[in-house]
Amino acid sequence: MSPMLTIAKREFRSNFDSPLAYVVICLSFFALGLMFFMLQGGFWQADRSSVERLFEYAPMGLSFLVVPVVTMRLVAEERRSGTLEMLITLPVSDSDVVLGKFFGALGLVLVLVLATLLYPFGMFKWPWVLGPLDMGPVASGYLGLILFSAAATSIGLLVSSLAESQAVAFFITFFVLAALWFFDNAAQYLSAGGNGGWFPTVLLYMSFQTRLSGFWRGLVDTRDILFFVSVTLLCLLVAFRALERRKWA
């Protein structure tokens, strides 16, 4: 097994050694269920056989809770406790460390994401069949969700590799992801005055919400895919540089 996979495996499993992961998983499922069925009238009021609401709320749960919690420890905690020295002086390259940690964390996030498949399948296939479900938007919605998870996780990893402590990492990741999510609303608010200029456009361009909304409706735009992929790659690259920086400190 390559060192990268070994690190990823360890990282993934370490989540289950602390009660934190279980708490986060339960909490996020509970919150998602609550939002899905209750918020703004809930699923039943909408009266459509669609799980678009799921894709709308799941990224929020990921942004505000799951990703910050899962990624905060990644590098910050290892640096603080000194285990980073132990890890890096094994025959692993810095990129093995960054990628291993990324995939380890993404693994857990994706387990959560895929667990939400229970909603579309449970309600529209078996045991309940509430109506005919168009599988197209479901598939594209999940594609969007996975791309989003990768981008968010890489942002969390980057923040963790720059932050002094995991608490700091948690809050910064939280705020960055929240900002990227609400850029959309901010842009609408700014341009509502009519004198938006270029700024709202930029916000809109970067908004994770705007980027994802196409996927929810079954629109797969290569520009959106590229956007998430490049955010991911860029963050991983900067995280790699941040890890290398220790050499010259």
Partner: peptide
């Protein structure tokens, strides 16, 4: 000071 993963 042998920093190790305490959760393993």
């Amino acid at each position: 000071r042998a920093p190790l993963y305490t959760d393993m």
